[in-house]
């Protein structure tokens, strides 16, 4: 059993070498009047996953290892390595980066789900997380019952939920899709309807800080619009939002600051337009480079093929000479 403490040595490290130079120690995001106590303060955050070689940890496997005196091989995946930033109250922070850049891990660290391996995270205010849709929902219960369940899971009391129930139902707006759907079991819902209810519960919980992971991609165009509106409304009420998204246009539209992560490092932090443009440029470059590499590899392969064919021809000729004209 391993602990996640910082002082332990790292056995194997598996991360692709980061192409970018790591970001400076602290990237102050705000140029605006600085709130002396930011909503979120991240200091030199490292978060590593230790994956054991065994896929499923069982007592049987542990006993067999004991008998054979084997040790568990450990791999350490550095999901976030040395990220520091501050988010003032009222900021909508967009987080962008390719798959596996550590965006979701960062968000989980901010919400206190994953303990940091090293570093420190300080969060001021009531946090609501929208990392996955429909957490705590029970498919066999109706939408109305799941609103209560989801709200309770977010840490609210039944009275508080009862107050908001109607506005949540209005926001989810299921009636336009299917009359009376809110009182039917959620297993009968389409995935979009499910997402609507889940999203409605998440944003109505009146958090000081809202952590969102790709939730806006749920629902159809009209609902997306309403969701964006709601998010903007939350921003206006001086809420702090951290938004992880692959939808670059969403980030550009919604956020007033943006950070770009690459292989667990913070690459750039600043104005969304600037950061996103750089990110797109980098992506283009990467793709071109990949194309070039691919082309080069293909050319090389073709050359080798040619050489091989020539060689075979030569061998054939030599054989013919040696054996005579019979072949």
């Amino acid at each position: 059993m391993s602990s996640l403490s910082a002082s332990e040595t790292v056995e194997t490290v598996e991360t692709a070498e980061s192409v970018q130079t790591p970001a400076p120690a602290t990237a102050a995001i705000a140029e605006k009047p600085l709130d002396p106590r930011p909503a979120i303060k991240v200091e030199d955050l490292h978060l590593y996953y230790r994956t054991k070689a065994e896929a499923n940890p069982t007592l049987k496997a542990a006993l067999i290892r004991k008998v054979k005196r084997q040790k568990v091989e450990q791999k350490v995946i550095k999901a976030v390595q040395g990220v520091s930033f501050e988010v003032p109250h009222g900021t909508v922070l967009g987080v962008i980066g390719h798959n596996g850049a550590g965006k979701s891990t960062l968000l989980r660290a901010l919400s206190g789900i994953l303990p940091p391996t090293q570093g420190r995270v300080e969060v001021r205010g009531r946090v609501s997380t929208l990392l996955a849709l429909g957490v705590g929902f029970n498919q066999n219960l109706t939408g109305r019952e799941n609103i209560v369940l989801g709200g309770l899971a977010q840490g609210w009391s039944k009275d508080q939920i009862r107050e908001k129930e109607n506005s949540i139902i209005d926001f989810a707006d299921l009636d336009t899709l299917s009359e009376g759907a809110i009182d039917r079991p959620m297993k009968t819902y389409s995935s979009g309807m499910y997402a609507r209810v889940a999203f409605a519960v998440g944003v109505h919980m009146d958090p000081d800080i809202l952590l969102v992971d790709e939730a806006l991609s749920a629902g159809d165009a009209r609902f997306k619009e309403r969701a964006t509106e709601k998010m903007l409304e939350l921003c206006e009420n001086a809420r702090t939002i951290v938004l992880v998204s692959h939808g670059l246009e969403t980030v550009r539209h919604m956020s007033n600051h943006c950070i770009w992560m690459d292989h667990g490092n913070l690459v750039q932090s600043g104005d969304p337009d600037e950061v996103i443009d750089n990110y797109i440029e980098k992506q283009h470059k990467d793709r071109e480079e990949a194309d070039r590499k691919k082309a080069a590899a293909e050319a090389k392969e073709a050359q080798e093929d040619e050489a091989l064919a020539a060689k075979a021809e030569k061998t054939k000729e030599a054989l013919q000479k040696a054996i005579g004209e019979d072949v």
């Binding site: 602990s3 391996t117 995270v121 001021r124 205010g125």
Partner: peptide, 21 residues
């Protein structure tokens, strides 16, 4: 502080740090 910008009553502070068992 003179005037905390948005009124945040009874502010909660969460600090997350590395831990041992």
């Amino acid at each position: 502080l003179k005037t905390p910008e948005p009124p945040r009553p009874a502010e909660q502070v969460h600090v997350f740090e590395p831990y041992r068992y």
